[in-house]
Design a protein around this nucleic acid. Structure first.
Lengths: 189, 189
DNA sequence: CGAGTAAACTAACACTTGTTAGTTTGTTTG
DNA sequence: CAAACAAACTAACAAGTGTTAGTTTACTCG
């Protein structure tokens, strides 16, 4: 049993507040109050507000990068790869829905790490698009604009963090399956 | 030829800044600088920062409400209605991509109007879900969870504001058609 | 017991925030 | 020309911002 350090606890609570109001609207005094201490005491555990955001976002972004690397280099079919991408998003979003809010909405408030973040995101999207293009060539996927397909799928996956916490009755496996069906086969009968 | 009032100009520029950094991170001095005047001068034209946000969000939300009312009370088939919803989102998002950012990301910073906004949104989603449920009953739509279907489609549509300005080569009609195809028939071949 | 340490505290800082009051400028209109 | 007005300005405010310095508290362990 791994116990959470005080620092990790602060970052976790910060992510929760960031999700509710956004990075800029959360003050260090808000965060301190949520922790039950004074603002100055936070600095025994963390370096700066910006550092908290860095930690939240970059660790998540790297988790996606790593997942995508495994998927894109596998020997699966394109459709199989897509299902694994969906699974990756469902897993990470359910484990850390608070952090996902910062990743999606507050990356522009990164300072030193913004360029690095944007590179990770751009690499991820390129890998995604390549999978779709390969699927079109292989005849697995309908020949529509890969840009639009990726946009459609990815924005749905990126919004899972809002949706998953509201639907705790739905198992993650069930959600992954339903989503795969809808995103791949559509809703048409 | 209708000329823009100074007030409308301020609101338009504010929406642009809000899209880039979020409501909380944009200061009245930022806004003034973008307008080429001093912060105090803004108050000759607007009442408060909060008022700007109200105007941006509520006018858009009401535009969606009105569009949905027309669609949901029509005699179209469910699939036809869905296509019209997609068209509604494409149209509004292309006309006002800046405002859509505030609608999506900064509604929680509304003060007096937050409850009203949430009612509009909730009504909209209920109408949307009813259309899907009717489609399932009528056998037009696959029998999957309407919640998940709506979530998937609606999050894609809600993110159009990010995507449309980047792809000016794509005509709105073409985008509407491609999106309809992908969202309804899926990407599977 | 005494030393070390984790984690809280108070007080203060320099700066930024939204906003108000009162004034000046330049253009339009009777 | 004189009056009216739109729209800018300077100066200032009270409150809130992230952060630092230095101190106190309470628990752990040799």
């Amino acid at each position: 049993m791994k116990t959470e350090t005080r620092q990790q606890e602060i970052i976790r609570v910060a992510a929760k507040l960031f999700k509710e109001k956004g990075y800029s609207a959360v003050t260090m005094r808000d965060l301190a109050k949520a922790m039950g201490i004074k603002a100055a005491s936070l600095y025994n555990h963390i370096n700066s507000k910006q550092d908290i955001l860095n930690t939240i976002i970059i660790s998540l972004a790297e988790e996606f990068t790593e997942g995508m690397k495994q998927i894109s280099t596998s020997n699966d079919t394109c459709i199989e790869k897509l299902k694994k991408i969906i699974q990756l998003h469902v897993n990470i979003s359910s484990k850390n829905s608070y952090g996902m809010a910062s990743l999606n909405n507050d990356w522009m408030h990164l300072e030193t790490q913004r360029t690095y973040y944007k590179k990770l995101r751009s690499d991820y999207e390129n890998d995604f698009k390549t999978i779709l293009e390969d699927g079109i060539k292989a005849g697995e996927i309908v020949n529509a604009k890969p840009d639009v397909m990726m946009f459609s799928i990815l924005t749905t996956l990126r919004s899972l963090y809002i949706w998953i916490p509201k639907k705790e009755d739905l198992s993650l496996e069930e959600l992954t399956n339903t989503l795969s069906q809808i995103l791949i086969k559509g809703i048409n009968k």
